[in-house]
Amino acid sequence: MKNQNRRDFLKTAAGIGASIGIAGSVKPAKASEKTLSDDRFGILVDTDVCVGCRHCEWACRVAHNIPTPDLDTYSDNSVFKEYRRTDASSLTVVNEFENEKNSAMPVHVKTQCMHCEHPACVSACIVGAFSKLEDGSVVWDGDKCIGCRYCMVACPFQIPTYDYDRSIDPQIRKCDLCFEKRKTEKLPACVNICPNEALLFGKRDDIVRIAKSRIKRKYDVYIDHIYGEKEIGGTSWMYIAGKDFEKLKLPKLNYSPAPGISESIQHGIFAYFVPPVTLYALLGTIMWITRKKKGDDSEIKDETNQDKKGGAL
């Protein structure tokens, strides 16, 4: 530092300015602004129709090559005693809730990744392992993932799960809407197997319309709210029910997209690298102005610079 003269300073400073200028002109990619197709899908879960047979759970495991017991064993209702969430071996689960209006007919709610319209997981993932496809599905790329579990922190529905028991190649797992399967078959496994047509698969706009008309038709059964239509900016999976959704353990969420605030802060700090570069220039200027002038050490003599090198020990 001490040897440096003015010319060197300016030369190097100019060099840095130029290289950062080039870096700054490369526009940062905005993952969340990918265009969504108007035909993107939506799925309606009609909790009034669902009988809790859990066939979807079975079909999901089979479709994702997760070992599963016989379908017959799924008629055992004792699993409903405890609330279950998705985990590394169940990408979807059905839970049972009490029905105050008719105790003989409990309410069943299937949960899985909601395939948000503005997915927090896509925005948050450190390496961009999640992506929102044009058809609406949100999929995970295991070749990129580093296992940081930030997606789990970010997801408003706390859906992604992690293989805590594996040291090598642990997976982040969540519903992928049978993305691979749907290349050949039309429907995801769960929708395909549902014997009661409690799951309705179609264009999202159509699904919203159908949900609305069902609510209107059976206004004495349903509460007037489509869970997922607006929550967190909208989701692909939507629910209608006769009971407050929070009591069905679907969290009460805002209507603004989940990644909104975080992304605007990020873009504020990094707006085309202007703030960091400005700060750099500012600090450089301060450094230049306050640089040590000979004999200017008013308060304490700086002795550290002299007599520093060499010397026997």
Binding site: A29, A31, S123, A124, C125, I126, V127, C145, P259, S262
Partner: peptide, 16 residues
């Protein structure tokens, strides 16, 4: 895979 963020960028991620 700790080196992945070096080549796989996600500008919207605070963690990145």
């Amino acid at each position: 895979y700790i080196w992945h963020p070096l080549i796989m960028w996600n500008g919207t991620s605070a963690l990145f």
